[in-house]
Design a protein around this nucleic acid. Structure first.
Lengths: 257, 257
DNA sequence: GGCTCTATGTGCGTTATCGCACAGACAGCG
DNA sequence: CGCTGTCTGTGCGATAACGCACATAGAGCC
């Protein structure tokens, strides 16, 4: 039994609904009526590459309980996570931003499910210039914030702090305090050596903040984790909250011409 | 006489036109007719802070011959450049993306001029859901690419390579091979020590790639600079070219409902 | 010309991370 | 149960960047 189908079985018990994705859930009844019939629930197994660098996106994905990473892979194989998307967001913004593709790889960081929507359906609704458009743009801005902060964090903070930030970002997108993730994979995300992650994780374990063994991490003391993290986590969290709380559906107070 | 007014005097001789900004220049005659009357030419002196972190944007800026940096400043004062905008772009995407502000500082990196447009005017045109909207979104995606690549570059490339990348990005936004920029300021942008920039710049000078003295840099051998740069410059350049070459004005082939 | 400020050059010890090598240790499987 | 592959722990020299201190040098100004 694969890890993916395991996840499938265990999750199947709890009902899946598009509402679990925050973006889908926030839409008005009319938009839901138009979109929901075309949503397909798909399992996302750990490590699955949804979209390779430069590929044209054919679907957008709304994660429910899965986590998806945007990863840049360099010519020499080294990599770095650019941003992370869970139930608060959507995978494939390039599809409606107009580029259709990006130079980064989209890969499943935590197994689970997502609803996907064909690109054409997405664009059709987007082009109605209604609430979906503005919701997507606000989300895209929060994604931009996350990328900017990642750049800063890569420059100025040490592995210990970055690991805390990364754990917190993942935790926010999961139900419980458990994550399935080897240190090797975390190292790929952070763009550092595996041994560096071993050392940082070891410190956190000594402090009683987390426990881990063979790819299973449990966060024991979240508040402490936040203290140990650099400011980057909080900046992203606050800005995302600010951007994604409800707002008027149009930018300009007067109706468009 | 300040550096700003010096720039003003010298530039005043060459005629200024909104067309010099690539985004404005690419608009259709109808949109230009609506927008151009409201554009104001403003000088941007070196170091001027257009917008502090968290400030609500009141204008968007279309640089003509100036360069503007999006800079993140941390709690402890350290900083890092997130992205750079010149005549190919617009400053203030958060205004139409819906957030109205960002957690980063907007500062003039190279003195010159820009056309600015009141936020309300910008939003009004944006909300007509015409070509401006799609042009802005495509540009925003190119900005996203730049930020992502900055994150990767900060993680994996050394100061020498990053300096080359930074020089190239600046060069692409200027007319000649000269840039006015102290090593101290470059260090702030790259988020490294000033001495590190001194060393990297010294190497480039020894190689005959650049010459510099007291805040004036001249690039002598651009091809060599590209060779010495990391892949990040080319990735950003190519992706931006791809995104900003002409495309249909709507995403969906059929007209929106 | 001489003063002063700013920009740049340099040396040196410290630190974080890397690259590599290899040693345990646990899980799954036959 | 024992094998095997994966995951984690650890040590050590190499390297890149840092922090600091201070020297040098050009530019502007009186």
């Amino acid at each position: 039994m694969t890890q993916a189908s395991q996840a499938a079985t265990s999750r199947q018990q709890t009902a899946q609904s598009p509402e679990q994705n925050h973006l889908l859930g926030e839409l008005s009844p009319e938009v839901k009526e138009r979109i929901y019939p075309f949503l397909e629930l798909v399992p996302l197994p750990l490590g699955h590459v949804i979209c390779e660098s430069g590929d044209t996106m054919r679907y957008v994905y709304f994660p429910i309980d899965s986590i998806v990473s945007l990863l840049y892979v360099m010519e020499n194989g080294e990599s770095a996570e650019i941003s992370v998307v869970g139930k608060e967001g959507i995978v494939g913004v390039s599809l409606f931003m107009g580029g259709e593709s990006t130079p980064s790889r989209t890969v499943v960081q935590s197994a689970g499910y997502a609803y996907r929507l064909a690109g054409q359906r997405m664009k059709a609704e987007f082009n109605r210039h209604g609430e979906l458009l503005f919701l997507m743009l606000r989300y895209t801005q929060s994604l931009i914030t996350q990328m900017a902060q990642t750049a800063v964090c890569n420059r100025h903070h040490n592995i210990d702090q970055q690991l805390c930030r990364w754990l917190l970002l993942s935790l926010d997108r999961l139900e419980g305090p458990h994550l399935v993730m080897t240190q090797e994979l975390i190292a790929n995300m952070l763009g550092v050596r595996r041994e560096g992650v071993t050392e940082a994780a070891g410190k956190l374990q000594k402090l009683g903040v987390i426990t881990y063994r063979r790819g299973k991490i449990e966060v024991m003391d979240r508040p402490r984790l936040e203290q140990l993290s650099c400011e980057c986590y909080e900046v992203v969290k606050k800005e995302t909250d600010r951007l994604m709380t409800y707002r008027p559906k149009v930018l300009h107070p007067r109706a468009p011409a």
